[in-house]
């Protein structure tokens, strides 16, 4: 589904992603962990197509197509979704209204006509229930005045509505209370399927108790320095990152 080869990218003349490789197959869940500032959000933004980031090398193919050639909206229409680490507030743009536009533009891209109003409302209701998002939040302006946790939940709600094939969750668990964490994780689990993949970025192995990953990778200074199964997350929780940093230095 997603193949990243030797990706190099940076911002404002500073290289942050320094030769990154990853292969995500359909249906897989990959967790990416790593110390603050190691480049996790940068990677997410580069994959989503943020234009401030400059790609200086490497290749990314998404379902056989060159992802790096696509505009952000085309990436989304091709099935890529990024749940932002810091979702922004957009006053005056209603959640529902913009999701409707998004769905219809994605459909138009695929050559399908606009969704019927009643089908759309049904979809919204269903997905709201999935992430237990209050109805009033869905009707409000995008993230405006939402609490930190509500914003994260809204990201997962949007993901559920848009039904991407590859979802990148950038620290969606940060700032969630225990119940919300469980709800969000359940939402993700319900969306797991053999043709949908996830890249879950997190600092805490707790999330991985709920969303059990197939692989865990450690990103350090712009490259993956260690990969393993879900046990790696437990090991990191216990020992921190120092031993890995040491391994990198020694190598």
């Amino acid at each position: 589904m997603l193949t990243i080869k030797n990706l190099r990218a940076g911002i404002e003349g500073k290289e942050i992603i320094k030769g990154f490789n990853l292969e995500v197959k359909a249906g897989e869940v990959h967790a990416i962990m790593g110390p603050n500032g190691s480049g996790k959000s940068t990677l997410s933004n580069v994959l989503a197509g943020r234009e401030d980031y400059i790609v200086s090398g490497g290749e990314v193919s998404f379902n056989g197509k060159n992802l790096l050639d696509m505009s952000p909206e085309v990436r989304a229409r091709e099935g890529l979704f990024l749940a932002f680490q810091y979702p922004i507030e957009i006053p005056g743009v209603s959640n529902i209204n913009f999701l409707k536009t998004a769905i219809n533009e994605i459909r138009a891209y695929k050559g399908i006509g606009p969704m019927e109003a009643k089908d759309f409302l049904k979809l919204i209701k269903e997905k709201q229930a999935l992430v237990e998002l209050q109805g009033s939040l869905a009707g409000r302006s995008v993230n405006e005045g939402f609490s930190g946790g509500e914003k994260k939940r809204n990201e997962i709600f949007q993901m559920a509505v848009l039904e991407p094939t590859l979802a990148i969750l950038d620290e969606t668990d940060s700032g969630l209370d225990i119940d919300a964490l469980r709800i969000v994780a359940n939402g993700v689990n319900k969306l797991r399927s053999e043709n949908r993949s996830f890249i879950v970025i997190t600092h805490y192995q707790r999330l991985l108790d709920y969303i059990v990953p197939d692989f865990v990778h450690v990103l350090y200074d712009g490259v993956i320095v260690k990969s393993g199964g879900k046990e790696l997350a437990l090991e990191l929780e216990e020992k921190g990152y120092d031993w890995i940093k040491k391994e990198v230095v020694e190598a």
Binding site: A48, E73, R75, A76, L82, L162
Partner: peptide
Amino acid sequence: FYLRARGL
């Protein structure tokens, strides 16, 4: 960017 990342 946020809106474009959602497909708009």
